[in-house]
Design a protein around this nucleic acid. Sequence first.
DNA 1: CTGAAAGCGCTTACAG
DNA 2: CTGAAAGCGCTTACAG
Lengths: 335, 335
Amino acid sequence: MVSIKDIAEISGVSVSTVSRVINGKDCVSPEKRAKIMQAVKSTGYVPNRAARDMVLKQTFKVAIIIPEGFNMFQRQLFSDIERHLHQFGYRSSLYFSAVGPVGEADCLRRLKGERLDGVIFLHEIAIPEFHEFLDKNNIPTVLVTFEKEELEATSIHISEGEAAVAAVEHLINLGHRDICLIGSNKYSFGIQRLQGYKDALAKAGIAYDEARVAFVETYGVQYGIEGMKKLMDRNIRFTALFAITDELALGAIRHLKDRGFSVPGDVSVVGFDDIEISSYTIPSLTTIRQPVTEMGQTSVALLHSLIASKNHMNVNIALPFTFVKRESTARPRNT
Amino acid sequence: MVSIKDIAEISGVSVSTVSRVINGKDCVSPEKRAKIMQAVKSTGYVPNRAARDMVLKQTFKVAIIIPEGFNMFQRQLFSDIERHLHQFGYRSSLYFSAVGPVGEADCLRRLKGERLDGVIFLHEIAIPEFHEFLDKNNIPTVLVTFEKEELEATSIHISEGEAAVAAVEHLINLGHRDICLIGSNKYSFGIQRLQGYKDALAKAGIAYDEARVAFVETYGVQYGIEGMKKLMDRNIRFTALFAITDELALGAIRHLKDRGFSVPGDVSVVGFDDIEISSYTIPSLTTIRQPVTEMGQTSVALLHSLIASKNHMNVNIALPFTFVKRESTARPRNT
DNA sequence: CTGAAAGCGCTTACAG
DNA sequence: CTGAAAGCGCTTACAG
């Protein structure tokens, strides 16, 4: 690999001078500058980032924390964040975290080895050491898709509870009373969406019934099938379902179909997230749209300003969500 | 950030000694070792990778080259590769490349700044400088999901052509004669799948008809809709479709439905890739399964061995694909 | 077993 | 305008 020394030698100047022209510094004589540019071009030299990072304060590198089995929504969000990070001149480092304290600790350990300008969480980390470390080292942080009140970190998300209420009220307004839920009580968004479901029912005077709620381990399509199986096995009657994730909804719809039920004919289904595929499935999915693009953009802009201005003013932004009516919901049959 | 110097100071030894115990080197007295371990623990010290990489030969970092709008199949593949890279102790650096020479050149420029142990391509790069650079600097390379004969690089993929033949023959065997294609002639896989389509038709004595082929810009669901629109606008009759990508197939099915046609009732559709969602859609998708997991695993294993053994013996591996029959294909109506 | 020293590739005061 | 020197955080012969 050609280094700054090589360039200096070739163009007959000192490395200091080379460094100056590489970094677009002012005062270098036109002749030397030309010679150096020449040498750079002919050798294809590009400065070694690692070496530079070591001496500079900034590394222009930000870590993105992602759950190991990241779902479709997170993948879209991740792509967006990536792109915006680029535009701001940052590079990104992916950190996958397995669930549980061991996985998280391991993730932290790996992360500690790198000098980071900032970190973006797409995933809630439970162990306190993680944020303590970031805090102690004054590394700006932004949480995307959730908030963590005890942390006073910058976060950007939607009002999960409100959105869930909107989803369930849509079903209620259509005339549904027997509304099931497939979800979980892990992570704040799971808990908040569940809470929204309860709130909407309460507001409509419908009793909350545990039998109508199926908890699943995680949020993939496969678990939508699991959840629906559980519900069916309980032999209860229901005409509607709120799945706290589009993927869960898609799985549930598939299982309904396999058991001979139609959506929305027999059961109305509303999801949450509005992942790309949801507008193309048959039936297309009624759901809550999270503003992915804006979330990606805003989180990067926010992180950037945290990095730029040394005073870390944390903000907590709730972006608006949108309820999207599509084909998977309708009035119940006998209304 | 606490550095090796701090640890040396705290434990009253030289940095050399600290370095030795950090790296599990042999000969250090038990007492000093204990003291150092102690200091490391209490300070939470973790060595700075950048500094270490600079002096060592290996960086344990591998670049993954990804197209800017990476599709669902590539996302799955990427996740798998990521995970396996981890297991082998590598870290990864993502490099998104925009299409076209400018985007590729920019990608190369960014890549040059980092010292890499290897690079994995999930995406074909056209500009010759890219591979020339890698070659000149002796950086091991593996191509995943395609091959590039002029390059004699290690590659791992399926027999695209054969697989396409299998897909189309399935339709032919069901009794279809009027078979359309939605695809493209960009990238080798596009070209090869198109070729497979032609070959299968030829073998069955069906004339190739340009009017039955719709080329689209890229491979997302949206373009499946575009493609189907084009086909419908041509006012031709057809009973089957081969979409060279599952996403394309899903879009096409959706558009068919919007125009009042049913799948597989009116039109049979076969896709390609077997992305996760394809087994859950309604109808579920008949398709060609690429062995994603094996591809991810093998590509990492291969890259690792290229890195480990300095002699770069390139291999070109074609993994077996699987034809998966699901709900989206059936006999044509009047047979 | 252990420390001083050189070096990896860069940048940036500090003198000219 | 420009170069010699120190330093970023590490590792690894080289002497003891």
